[in-house]
Design a protein around this nucleic acid. Structure first.
Length: 426
RNA sequence: GGAGAGGUGGCUGAGUGGUCGAAAGCAGCGGUUUGCUAAACCGUCGUAGGGGACUAAAACCUCUACCGAGGGUUCGAAUCCCUCCCUCUCCGCCA
């Protein structure tokens, strides 16, 4: 969300910048609505001022013992007029807010201009994809063969797009969670948070999932609770409606949570395996920063996420998303893509974004610099998606005999050096 | 789930129909005093949105809204009524 007065006075420049992300800002309808809203506001507020003044007058007359029936009747009329106008204001205001909420953030100047994912720019590459001297398998074959992943029973107990991890598979997931949390809290300076996995709609409005993306979420019946689609929602909303001490910034938090997504609209996409599930586990990194420090903190956050893959020895590349490929709230986004030999491709395993003030303004997360209060900047990124990291390990480190060699750094967490066929299910 | 108490500015806390956006204190900010620190004293100090003024932003002038949220009563609501949410205490149940 934008600051209205800033938006108004920079309309043309903003519109021009937004075209780079394929968004055509309708200047006329903005100007019309804005004018309509302001006219309506001026009118109601004028009437309210009149009513306040007349009521005050009545108060004085009553004290003086004068009969005020006539004045009261008159003011009652004003009240009715106000009520009528208020409905108009409400309608126009809502229309205006809907329009404003639909306007995406301005891309940072360092973001490459482009029209599709093709125009994303690779900024780094780490490690070399291994060449296999045997036919390598995808995790959806390897997992069930090793007895560490079960799709059929998951479908029985819940449904499609769910998986059950068994034995060493479950342990690997847990090991990865602990490994990631330990690295981020011990080495990268994050504070661990364990938030509720359900959140209310105010929180979803704060981070921007609502009102536009309700279809992507699971809502609980008979309550205002939703299953969190990412820890970004509870963790960023921790400081909703608060003013943060600038001295304490940046605040760096990391949280493990399961994430729940309806994946509406992605039917037929990634149907095999655990790449795209209704429930997946994630360790999320969230930062609150001063406005002048958010971009350097985005670099830090991205490299903190990359460090997990470096330590695990999984090859990856990092791309900066072009103007049209970013999410609407983001000013700049890096995707980290891990090499998955089973798919012979780099696949997204983390997405690290700087929302600048866009999200903070919605959620009213502010900081006081000098004696000026302004929106803080919010950032977040996966550090990492645990299920996809699980896939990366199983696929990258598979052996000819079907076993999986565990990266050294992870061995203490798993208490094993290798996952062998049949070792999991007795 | 049952019974009770309560939600007011960054915090503590007055205010039960009429200059209340809200007393007082603390914190904060500006200043005076001071060898330094501390203290004292004076001043200032909520957020958001309109309008005015201005080349323009800020400061400024002015209006409106906001005392958990939403409705209602009234000429007029922080104050009265209704619904909901949240917090606390006790009882019950429970991992």
């Amino acid at each position: 969300m934008y600051d209205f007065s800033f938006f108004r006075s920079n309309l043309d420049a903003i519109a021009a910048r937004l075209t780079t992300r394929g968004f055509a800002l309708d200047l006329d309808s903005f100007r019309n609505l804005d004018a309509k809203r302001r006219t309506a506001l001026t009118e109601v507020e004028g009437l309210r001022a009149q009513r306040n003044a007349e009521s005050m007058e009545i108060s004085k007359l009553k004290k003086a013992g004068v009969d005020t029936a006539a004045q009261q009747a008159k003011v009652r009329g004003i009240g009715e007029e106000i009520a009528r106008l208020e409905e108009q204001v409400k309608a126009v205001d809502e229309e205006f807010r809907t329009l404003m909420a639909g306007i995406p953030n301005m891309p940072h100047e360092s973001v490459p201009t482009g029209t599709s994912a093709e125009d994303n720019v690779e900024v780094r590459r780490h490690g070399t994809p291994r060449s296999f001297d045997f036919p390598c398998k995808a995790h959806w074959d390897l997992g069930p063969e090793l007895g560490i992943l079960d799709f059929e029973r998951a479908a029985k107990i819940t449904g499609a797009r769910f998986a059950v991890y068994m034995g060493m598979g479950a342990k690997l997931e847990r090991a990865l969670i602990n490994f990631m949390l330990d690295v981020h809290t011990r080495e990268h300076g994050y504070t661990e948070v364990l938030p509720p996995f359900m959140i209310n709609s105010a929180s979803l409005y704060g981070t921007g999932q609502l009102p536009k993306f309700a279809a992507d979420l699971f809502k609980l019946e008979n309550s205002d609770f939703w299953l969190a689609p990412t820890a970004e929602v509870p963790v960023t909303n921790l400081y909703r409606d608060e003013t943060l001490d600038a001295e304490k910034l940046p605040i760096s938090l990391c949280a493990y949570t399961p994430c729940f997504r309806s994946e509406a609209g992605s039917h037929g996409k990634d149907v095999r395996g655990i790449i795209r599930q209704h429930q997946f586990q994630k360790v999320e990194l969230v930062k609150f920063t001063r406005p002048d420090q958010s971009h350097e903190q985005l670099e830090k956050l991205t490299s903190d996420a990359e460090d997990i893959l470096v330590r695990l020895g999984v090859p990856f590349r990092t791309v900066v998303l072009c103007t049209s490929d970013m999410g609407p709230s983001s000013a700049k986004t890096y995707d980290i893509e891990a090499w998955l030999p089973g798919q012979n491709a780099y696949r997204e395993i983390s997405s690290c974004s700087n929302y600048e003030a866009y999200q903070a303004r919605r959620a009213s997360i502010r900081t006081k610099i000098g004696n000026k209060t302004e929106p803080a900047h919010t950032l977040n990124g996966s550090g990492l998606a645990v299920g996809r990291t699980w896939v990366a390990i199983v696929e990258n480190f598979q052996q000819r005999d079907g076993s999986v060699v565990i990266p050294e750094g992870l061995r203490p967490y798993l208490n094993a050096e290798v996952i062998t066929p049949g070792a999991s299910l007795k």
